[in-house]
Design a protein around this nucleic acid. Structure first.
Length: 649
RNA sequence: GCCGGGGUAGCUCAGGGGUAGAGCGCAUCCUUGGUAAGGAUGAGGUCACGAGUUCAAUUCUCGUCCUCGGCUCCA
């Protein structure tokens, strides 16, 4: 008998060799139906693998990452089986799971091609194969036998993968007529897979290297219940509706022009207003935290980037230098603001008492991105960072980190981002040589970040080896209204640039010391942040931020003057109001302005004009009754104040 | 950059080897209205660009440009 410890710490005894599925059955029939894989002492295994020693286990269902992983991994094999039967001679690359679903890279026989139209046929075949309830059989195999087997099949990709594996660790999984090199784990059989949607087909280089052959990658997602697939489809529809490129066009926030160039956004009046609100907000917050705004040029002498090291590292992949005709000077479009900020710091000597110096700038930078990488506002060639550089003493690092975290929280609160995670990126413990700066400083900086996060009660994950060569960092990821994750703000310690720019301050000992630099951008870039915000809110921005807060709708042209009077009145209270004086009926004006996502509509007619009132309509909620102009202005400003309570505290 | 879908009116899209289509938007006029679409009339297109095949190309072929989905996530 062996002892099995369950997640609730209860211990049960089973025969040696008991399997996950048997344990599940012994607990409940429901669990036996729902369980997809088993975690045994931190290793995820097939439900059919015998357990031969005492162990702590967890039974993974659809609700867990590990459960989904086994499910989608098996689905990838099922797809491969379908493709193998429909396109004999296909060679298979890799077929992993991803955040939402799975893919398989395949090399189709000469002259064969899979397009979107073929996906439905493959789905049907997969369902047919799934219903056969074929068992996933696991087999240990020697490296030699594996190589022979895939050489016979002519599958060069699997051969390459096997040749890199260690003998004794190689396993095969077989279901139906299809056998694949695989580490597992898998579902007990194919019948678990009830609903399948193949989502797209794309080219992908073997091993992501453009020197290699391009394979066909087929993406799909699958579910244990038809209902889940329906929910997934609804979610995808919603995501499509919220696409910032679509909403950006509809709401006239920004546009792209072929004549200006790819990846170079043009901000239209409403989008510019959105950015202006965000910038004003952040500037106010930063002012409170002791930041000073500076302004630097869009280009800089090549030498500046040679000093910073950016030229050596990115020069070839950047926009090329700009030359002056007569004098032969060489400039680069600014890819980073930090070198300029270092020069700003260098203007005079500093006492240790003056630090930290915090220089902030909404600095526009230009970076070359391959044309195929460009995507709406999230991947562009010119963008504005809400950048700042903090020059501080090593002993101030922790305090400064905490202050930046405070700023980020104020932003999250004002914009209603409720779920976030923070990733701490530290050195690779096995390879300290590749990092610049002294051990002592790194140790200090790393513990400063970790402690700052702890003291602020942050939800963190720590990744070793993810630090930049010049310093550790803290990145913030938020979850939007649809549960999608986005990387936003970042805080990075930098030992490199102060060194390269020879930055100094005079310490209490009257000697020169090297300051530490912190790069930080709570939004990341204005472009990307606006894109996330659009998709998070579906274009219904919080009142304080939205470009047009109020539209006044006169019942007929007779009341246009009064409407204008109300508009002027509200504008004096810094409320963004305009009049819709089109020659249309009131129902029409309401509909059009609701669709434009205007938070408040004020209807004014004979009654209102006589009494000096407005009839208030809140977006999505309808008629809210009548108020005086004065009451409404106060009411609206109170709402804004409430949304920005963190800022006014 | 590479692979694969696209590019038809301002927007969303239908069509198809032989006078170019719809809805919305826009303009003019009528209507002056009370909480999600009032009516009439009209303007608007080198069917992305360039070449080729053809009696004839927006449609077929090739090239260019732009755009969309991918190209990191351990077999």
């Amino acid at each position: 008998m062996i002892k099995i410890t369950l997640p609730d710490n209860s211990v049960r005894e089973y025969e040696n060799g008991v399997t996950g599925i048997e344990i599940a059955k012994s607990i409940s029939n429901r669990l036996a139906k729902d369980v997809l894989s088993i975690t045994v002492n931190d290793e995820v295994l097939d439900l059919t693998r015998p357990i031969v020693e005492d162990a702590s286990i967890n039974l993974n269902t659809w609700d867990s990452e590990d459960g989904k992983h086994a499910f989608w991994h098996s689905s990838a094999h099922l797809m491969a089986e379908a493709i193998d039967s429909m396109y004999p001679g296909t060679k298979f690359g890799i077929g992993p799971t991803i955040d939402l679903g799975f893919y398989y890279d395949v090399d189709l026989p000469e002259g064969k091609q899979i397009t979107e139209k073929d996906l439905v046929k493959i789905e049907k075949k997969m369902i047919e194969l799934a219903r056969q309830k074929n068992v996933f059989e696991r087999e240990d195999i020697t490296k030699e036998a594996a190589l022979t087997m895939f050489t016979e099949k002519g599958d060069v990709y699997k051969q390459e993968l096997i040749s890199e594996l260690e003998d004794g660790t190689i396993t095969l999984y077989k279901q139906g007529n299809f056998t694949d090199l695989c580490r597992g784990p898998h579902l007990p059989n194919t019948s678990y897979i009830k609903a399948i949607k193949l989502t797209s087909v794309a080219g992908a280089y073997w091993r992501g290297d453009e020197k290699n052959k391009m394979l066909t990658r087929i993406y799909g997602v699958s579910f244990p219940k038809q209902k889940f697939l329906e929910e997934y489809k609804v979610m995808m529809e919603e995501a499509k509706k919220r696409d910032h490129r679509k909403i950006g066009k509809e709401m006239e926030l920004f546009t792209f022009s072929q004549s200006v160039g790819q990846g170079l956004p043009i901000w239209l009046p409403k989008g510019a207003m959105l950015r202006e609100q965000l910038e004003t907000f952040l500037k106010k917050v930063q002012k409170r935290f002791g930041y000073q705004q500076i302004i630097t040029p869009h280009i800089g002498d090549v030498q500046l980037y040679k000093t910073s090291g950016h030229y050596q590292k990115y020069g070839e992949d950047s926009f090329q230098t700009i030359n002056t005709p007569a004098e032969g000077e060489e400039f680069m479009l600014k890819p980073m603001n930090c070198p300029h900020h270092c020069e700003a710091f260098r203007t005079r000597p500093y006492s240790y008492k003056e630090l930290p110096i915090r220089y902030a700038e909404f600095g526009t930078v230009y970076r070359y991105e391959q044309s195929g990488e460009l995507h709406g506002l999230t991947r562009v060639r010119g963008f504005t960072q809400d950048d700042a550089h903090i020059f501080c003493r090593p002993d101030q690092l922790k305090e400064e980190f905490k202050k930046v975290i405070d700023i980020i929280f104020i932003i999250f609160k004002a914009l209603d981002f409720k779920e976030y995670t923070a990733q701490i990126s530290l050195r690779d413990p096995n390879n300290h040589e590749k990092y610049i700066g002294s051990q002592e400083n790194w140790d200090k900086a790393e513990s400063a970040i970790v402690e700052a996060c702890e003291e602020k009660g942050l939800n963190t994950i720590t990744e070793l080896g993810e630090a930049a060569f010049y310093g550790p960092k803290l990145d913030f990821m938020i979850k939007d209204a649809l549960g999608r994750k986005w990387q936003l703000g970042t805080i990075q310690v930098d030992y490199n640039l102060p060194e390269r720019f020879n930055l100094e301050y005079i310490g209490a000992d009257d000697k020169k010391h090297r300051p530490v630099m912190i790069h930080r951008a709570p939004f990341g870039s204005m472009e990307r942040f606006c894109a996330v915000l659009i998709e998070h809110t579906a274009g219904k921005f919080p009142l304080w931020l939205t470009p047009e807060q109020v539209v006044i709708l006169p019942i007929s042209e007779k009341y246009n003057d009064y409407a204008q009077n109300v508009s002027n009145y509200l504008n004096n209270y810094d409320i963004r109001a305009i009049v819709d004086d089109r020659n249309e009926k009131i129902g029409r004006k309401i509909r059009d302005n609701e669709l434009k996502r205007i938070p408040y509509l004020l209807i004014v007619g004979e009654k209102e004009a006589e009494e000096g009132t407005v009839s208030v309509r809140r977006q999505g909620e309808g008629d809210k009754g009548t108020m005086s102009k004065d009451e409404f202005a106060k009411f609206l400003n109170d709402e804004v104040r409430e949304q920005l309570s963190e800022l006014y505290n």
